[in-house]
Design a protein around this nucleic acid. Structure first.
Lengths: 199, 199
DNA sequence: GTCTATATTGCGATAGAC
DNA sequence: GTCTATCGCAATATAGAC
């Protein structure tokens, strides 16, 4: 196998395994088996199991850089929130293992949490805080709301929908063809709340 | 050590270890060491490591039964949602490891997911769906909203706030003394949204 | 019920041949 | 770069003494 093929084949094989069973739930033997590559190649290319895991996570969390780019656009703060929601849905659809690494690292952190995961999450939250603070100065949002709590509330609605899917798949349709409705719905609650006017 | 002491000591020692490092991240030797109990007691009382883990999860997820009890109260649907939010915050404060098991099982399921975790989560979601459907028939909520999506949106705001704490602890004050403000804030967004009137 | 001692298996890593 | 073979260690589980 060509030099670079081996690296990428190993990362491709390791990604779903690590995502579904966690770092400690997978052995290097199994990864090598799935990748049809000799076990020793993991040490050769990545310096060991931890190095391979770090390479997987670096690839996964690189996609969060896209959130910061929304800030550069010329658009309403509320429209930017919607772009974040749309981008997040698209991100999870395109990278079906991303959320698992995200929550797995928050719940059972490895050394990668401090170096890769935490900076990525902080970057997203800071960007959302910015949107809200910006919107406040444009008098678009209600004054009583805390920028950070509001940012986390929106991020929570969208992230939790994907997180809880294994438990609620039978109660709710989580298929991609309902994504547009989901986005409209989340933005509607975020913007206007659930209560009837005057209640 | 007395017969029943041994069981409870093992569960008490295993709970934080499993919560922080996951099922595969902890060895029975370590658990026994922390509990100051002989390793073989785990097999004796629980039939093995998996049995001990199941006992821990059963204890943890039993507290979700409290959500169904809200449905029995005579109160507004919106008030019931608030009781759910308050109960959830109190539940996570009282059981500091609960959320870790919750997300760990959603992300890297063990055999306990199907038997313990999934039924517990489905019970909560069904109860919240009920609140919303009930509120719709009382014309308390806006008609365009989907009951399930709305339920998941509220659950997402509150759960995500606690989940993301390891990453945002430096950006946001997650301490219990801010809980009351958090509850008011989440209920405010849920009820009224973030947008200024007329925007 | 609780202990020691051990059986058995699987792990990650690597030396050294090619 | 890639392979085989193996080292050293840690894992869970349990047999059997007390």
């Amino acid at each position: 196998m060509a030099e670079n093929d081996c690296r990428t084949t190993l990362i491709a094989a390791a990604t779903p395994l690590f995502a579904e069973r966690g770092f400690n739930g997978v052995s290097v033997r199994e990864i090598a088996g799935v990748a049809c590559v000799n076990v020793s190649m993991i040490s050769y290319y990545f310096g060991g199991k931890e190095g391979l895991y770090a390479a997987v996570l670096n690839e996964q969390f690189a996609v969060f850089k896209g959130v910061a780019e929304i800030a550069l656009l010329k658009a309403d703060p509320l429209k930017k929130f919607e772009l974040y929601v749309r981008g997040t849905v698209a991100r999870y659809r395109r990278n079906p293992y991303l959320l698992r690494f995200y929550t797995s690292e928050l719940t059972n952190p490895t050394p990668c949490f401090a170096t890769i995961v935490k900076p990525a999450i902080q970057g997203v939250v800071k960007t959302l805080q910015e949107f809200f603070t910006d919107g406040l100065s444009h008098h678009e949002f209600r004054e009583g709301l805390d920028p950070t709590d509001t940012a986390l509330a929106l991020a929570g609605m969208i992230n939790f929908y994907f997180l809880v899917e294994p438990a609620t798949g039978e109660l709710v349709d989580h298929s991609p063809r309902r994504d547009e409705e989901l986005i409209r719905h989340i933005m509607d609650i975020f913007a206007n709340g659930a209560l009837k006017q005057g209640k």
